[in-house]
Design a protein around this nucleic acid. Structure first.
Lengths: 191, 191
DNA sequence: GAATTTGTACTGACCGGTCAGTCTAAACGG
DNA sequence: CCGTTTAGACTGACCGGTCAGTACAAATTC
């Protein structure tokens, strides 16, 4: 794949992500994506087999970036705060990807359900590995089921990040991160 | 409104909820909804001004039910467990409504964003009232910001319920509820 | 000169919305 | 009682626009 096609695909990803995240995959037209990317419609069909294939590639691409970030964040600082912070940073940078993901991930017989299940597992298993390591090091309280907790943490962070972006954009990332940490460790009855 | 139209609207809500939840509002056709409800297409337009209006009515209807449940649950048992349990029960009963909500709620300039913001506030404020009462009674740890926490709790429960329905349907409601409570009060570093 | 992109024009299936007409049960009049 | 009218609810064929995908010749890039 030449550098030129890579650049074209990148433009298409950016454009598609923006539009699809905002308005949903089904209601965005291929012509709009082409216009937003500043590219001819034919180019889309030269690079992708169909509109669906473009969206699927977009999903894979996004998850790849997120997975990469989580892995490198983990090697830099293995605390739970660091993981949460990195994920919030990703969602802040690609809010449209969060919107896309959240609106497709739990659609039972959706066209991307198979793909998305696998992608979800990618991310959740990274989180799980992270938490497992914390747990083994005795840095998590006893009794936390790592599998359940990591799936829940991923979903929770996703919606909290979206809520932040959409309904409370004035809050800072650090503030949100602290709220999450606080929520996640402090909401029990007074002790 | 006659009993007949009420029944028709109910059939339309059921049909629309099923299809729209599964496949998304934009990709479900009015003909499909009519067929699923066992009703002629014209009937839909007799009862609702447009496809959008139908979906909007559906959103209001669903939130009304949820709000009613939360209010009555609160009067029966004011613990946090009871609130969580009731909400999980609602999502278990209307999974398609959860799918619809999650895929539209955070769509920034979406056609239903205005309506949805208000509906979200309805629910969140019920949760907030509930938590405020717990907080005043000294049954929450100090420092919990009730506003933030209630929005986060609502979103968190929504995605956890969806994840439960879609990816881990074999788990029982009580089991999920306990995980949530555990997550929400126990994930901090070992103390 | 091969690969990629462009621009424009086109097709055909699909879909939201319309509308003239049907059905039915209740109200009315004799 | 019984024919007639009225009104609300419902029907489904149809129309017009939209949109994914195709076609292709010319231009651009490597």
């Amino acid at each position: 794949m030449s550098a030129r096609t890579t650049a074209t695909k990148q433009k298409l990803f950016d454009a598609a992500l923006k539009l699809v995240g905002e308005r949903g995959a089904a209601s965005v037209t291929v012509d709009e994506i082409a216009a937003e990317a500043g590219v001819a419609k034919g180019t889309i069909y030269y690079n992708f087999a169909s509109k669906d294939a473009l969206v699927e590639a977009l999903l894979r691409h996004g998850v790849e970036i997120l997975a990469g970030r989580l892995r490198s964040a983990e090697s830099a600082d293995d605390s739970l705060e660091a993981l949460v912070d990195e994920m919030l940073g990703f969602w802040a940078e690609y809010p449209a990807f969060g919107q896309l993901l959240v609106s497709e991930l739990w659609r039972t017989p959706g066209q991307w359900h198979g793909t998305l299940s696998l992608l979800r597992d990618d991310i959740v298993s990274i989180v799980r590995g992270h938490m497992k390591r914390l747990s083994d090091a005795g840095r998590l309280p006893d009794g936390v089921e790592v599998g359940t907790a990591s799936a829940a943490l991923f979903g929770t962070l996703l919606v909290i990040a979206l809520d932040w972006q959409v309904f409370q954009p004035e809050r800072s990332r650090a503030e949100v991160r602290d709220s999450v940490m606080h929520l996640v460790r402090g909401l029990g009855p007074a002790r």
